[in-house]
């Protein structure tokens, strides 16, 4: 079989692009869009933080009011407790003065209960006698 015989049996055919041309080469990035956008997330976080700070502010106001309520409840009780304490202090003072008078009765010119300060302002006694 000679070479000319092959050329004769298979007709010549030029290799051509497919009908309609090649499809376009996909060289661009292909990243599908997923989830909310960055702007939405940022906005959402900002909104959440804003609401949180609003609640913190509300809570601070409420805490302040609770504190004020507590303080006023104590203020209302001050006269009552002070009166009771004063009666007790007065009783102890009188007893201390009587004791001092009894102890110092032989000392001439002793002034019972005289302050060591040259100032008429009241001072509660610095010490107590444990019997």
């Amino acid at each position: 079989m000679s070479r000319s015989m092959i050329t004769m049996s298979i007709p010549f055919r030029q290799d051509m692009p497919p009908v309609g041309g090649f499809e376009a080469v996909r060289y661009k990035r292909n990243l599908p869009l997923r989830g909310p956008s960055g702007l939405a997330i940022l906005g959402g976080v900002t909104a959440l933080c804003a609401y949180g700070f609003y609640r913190v502010g509300k809570g601070n106001i409420e805490k302040r009011e609770l504190q004020r309520e507590k303080i006023w409840s104590r203020i209302h009780l001050v006269p009552l407790l002070l009166a009771e304490g004063d009666r007790d202090a007065y009783r102890r003072e009188q007893a201390a003065l009587a004791r001092e008078k009894e102890i110092m009765k032989e000392v001439k010119d002793w002034e019972v209960g005289k302050s060591v300060y040259n100032n008429p302002r009241y001072r509660s006694s610095e010490y107590i006698v444990v019997l």
């Binding site: 006269p79 009552l80 002070l82 009166a83 009771e84 004063d86 009666r87 003072e93 009241y122």
Partner: peptide, 14 residues
């Protein structure tokens, strides 16, 4: 501030 000064008022409070 003397305890003896306000005993009367203190009794009323109590």
């Amino acid at each position: 501030r003397e305890p003896a000064h306000c005993l009367k008022e203190g009794r009323r409070v109590t």
